[in-house]
C-alpha cells in the first residue's frame, strides 16, 4: 500500500497576512498570543471536501436574476481561473461569493449602514469551477462602505470569495478589489499582507475581452491556491 503523503507548500514570507495586525483593530483581541504549532501534514491535512455530485447546491452565477427586477448598479462580469502555485487548474471546486449592493449595504440585518437596501439584490452566488478551473459570475459592482476601524475609515469596494481547492489545507477565503480604487492605499485589511506582489493578487484586472458590448464590464480575477511541495516526501 502506498504510504506517501504529498504535503502542501508553506506560504512564502510576507505573502499571507499575520493574525495580529493592530492597524486592523479587531485582530487585537482575536489573534492568539501563542504561535500556532507547526504541524507536518498528515492524511487529515491533505484531504478535504469533494464537491462532485452537486450536494453543495446548484450553480448560482447570475446575481442579477431571481428577483422582481434588475438590481441597481453597474453590471459587471467577474471571471477567472482557480489555479495552484504551479498554474495547474483546480477543477470542480466550490467557489462561494458574497457582496454588498451598489450603495454599500449588505442584505443582512446586522448591517445597519445608512444606505438603501435593494429589493432586487441579495449579493450571494456560487459555482463549481469547470475542467479548466474557470468560473464566471454576473453581478453588479459593490459600493464602498464605512467601518469603524478608525475614524472615517471606508472599505474599498470588494467581493468576498470562498474557495476550497483539493484539501482542508488549501481552503481560502479572500476578497477581490477593483483596480485604481483610492481606498486601497488606506485599507487596513488589504494592507495586512506585507508583500506587495502578493497583495496585487487581490486586485482584479479590467479585461475588455471579458466585457460584453452594450451590457456589462468585465473583470478578470484569477485565484491561486497553495500548491504541493515541490518534491513528494516519503511518509517516514
Amino acid at each position: 500500500m502506498s504510504d506517501t503523503i504529498r504535503p502542501f507548500a508553506r506560504p512564502r514570507e510576507g505573502s499571507q497576512p499575520p493574525y495580529l495586525h493592530p492597524d486592523y483593530a479587531s485582530t487585537v483581541k482575536r489573534a492568539p498570543k501563542h504561535s500556532p504549532i507547526p504541524l507536518e501534514h498528515t492524511l487529515t491535512e491533505v484531504t478535504g471536501p469533494v464537491f462532485a455530485g452537486g450536494w453543495a447546491g446548484a450553480d448560482a452565477a447570475d446575481l442579477t436574476q431571481g428577483h422582481g427586477g434588475p438590481p441597481l448598479g453597474e453590471r459587471i462580469i467577474v471571471s477567472g481561473r482557480v489555479l495552484d502555485e504551479d498554474a495547474r487548474p483546480v477543477s470542480g471546486t466550490l467557489v462561494e461569493l458574497w457582496q454588498c449592493n451598489a450603495a454599500g449595504r449588505y442584505c443582512y440585518p446586522v448591517d445597519q449602514h445608512d444606505a438603501p437596501l435593494d429589493p432586487n439584490f441579495d449579493g450571494v452566488g456560487q459555482v463549481l469551477t469547470d475542467e479548466r478551473g474557470e468560473y464566471r459570475f454576473l453581478t453588479i459592482k459593490p459600493g464602498a462602505y464605512p467601518w469603524r476601524n478608525t475614524y472615517n475609515a471606508w472599505r474599498p469596494a470588494h467581493i468576498h470569495f470562498g474557495i476550497f481547492g483539493p484539501a482542508f489545507t488549501t481552503r481560502l477565503i479572500t476578497q477581490m478589489y477593483f483596480p485604481g480604487d483610492p481606498l486601497l492605499a488606506l485599507d487596513a485589511i488589504y494592507l495586512g499582507t506585507a508583500d506587495e506582489k502578493a497583495r496585487q493578487r487581490l486586485i482584479a484586472a479590467y479585461d475588455p475581452n471579458l466585457s460584453e458590448a452594450e451590457w456589462a464590464l468585465g473583470y478578470r480575477f484569477d485565484i491561486v491556491l497553495r500548491g504541493r511541495e515541490a518534491t513528494p516526501m516519503e511518509n517516514t
Binding site: 458574497w98 446586522v110 491556491l225
Partner: peptide
C-alpha cells in the same frame, strides 16, 4: 505563482 492572500470573512459572512 504567488498564492492569493487570505482576507477576513468580515462580519456579514452569513449571507454567503
Amino acid at each position: 505563482l504567488i498564492a492569493t492572500p487570505s482576507q477576513t470573512v468580515g462580519p456579514f459572512f452569513h449571507i454567503g
